[in-house]
Design a protein around this nucleic acid. Structure first.
Lengths: 146, 146
DNA sequence: CAGCATCCGTGAAGATACTG
DNA sequence: CAGTATCTTCACGGATGCTG
């Protein structure tokens, strides 16, 4: 199917872009291969439970139920899965003390602490601009709903 | 169901925590109310498509299909939803040019540009430590699978 | 206390087709 | 070109019960 290739009515001159030059952009990393991997790391950050756990652990090791209490709303299942994920990524260590009852401490690794910095920066930004974002949301919802 | 409250075998003295003091931690923000809102912002960052779009838009406005091409793998539906979400949060603007064929430009707002900075910091961290993380993953998987 | 196994409901995401 | 609408799928997450 030709899908019409009429030379008429094609690409409009419509809006004069401020930047029509020959690609003068910095483009820090056009490498598509990296994106995949980076995305997997970012998705971990996007996981709200992971972020909370990292936050909670940023000031020292914690026990399982200690974390569960602090986060307040997470199910045991999710906490387990979250911790496993973080452990898998080398972001937290899991230390078992063979006492009775058993005790397990979770602690951020060097890598985990490193991650906590940009995450906290992001969290700070989020906190600082939260009101503006929520305002935008309300406004948008009103427009779209009224 | 007493679940046993024998004074014996209770809380162990097991591991001498380096920090058993009366909570000398900084605790930047114990406010639980904020967490909810912050989480909603973080979840947006965690959404891989949102991050990609923000990245793509960080160097100037783009059209719908332009973004679709650049991201390569996103469905039209997801791109639409992602852009709607970003627009709702006041992170991107949507400008319609009533030409034929129609043209819509998406551009980061001031807020969106502000967000792109910590996001890129996070992306940089992810890229820098990607190999270490992937190594940890492989190692973990081997342990758990072998 | 810490954690796994299981079941099940919800909704997020892809594919496809149609409209302005 | 830039969407909307619909259908289907399936992974995420909660609840529950059991083990070491």
């Amino acid at each position: 199917m030709g899908t019409s290739l009429k030379p008429a009515n094609i690409e409009m001159p419509a809006p004069p872009r401020p930047n029509p030059g020959p690609d003068p952009r910095p483009m820090p990393d056009p490498n598509h291969a990296d994106c995949r991997g980076v995305a997997s790391v970012l998705s971990r950050v996007g996981d709200k439970w992971s972020v909370f756990v990292i936050m909670m652990l940023s000031d020292g090791p914690k026990r399982f139920n200690e974390l569960k209490r602090m986060i307040n709303g997470i199910s045991q299942r999710m906490l387990t899965l979250t911790l496993r994920g973080l452990e898998r990524d080398g972001l937290v260590t899991r230390t078992i003390f063979p006492t009775i009852p058993p005790r397990v401490d979770y602690e951020l690794t060097e890598l985990g602490h490193g991650l906590s910095r940009p995450v906290e920066a992001l969290g700070k930004w989020a906190k600082d601009h939260l009101d503006r974002i929520e305002a935008a949301r309300t406004k948008f919802d009103q427009r779209n709903e009224g």
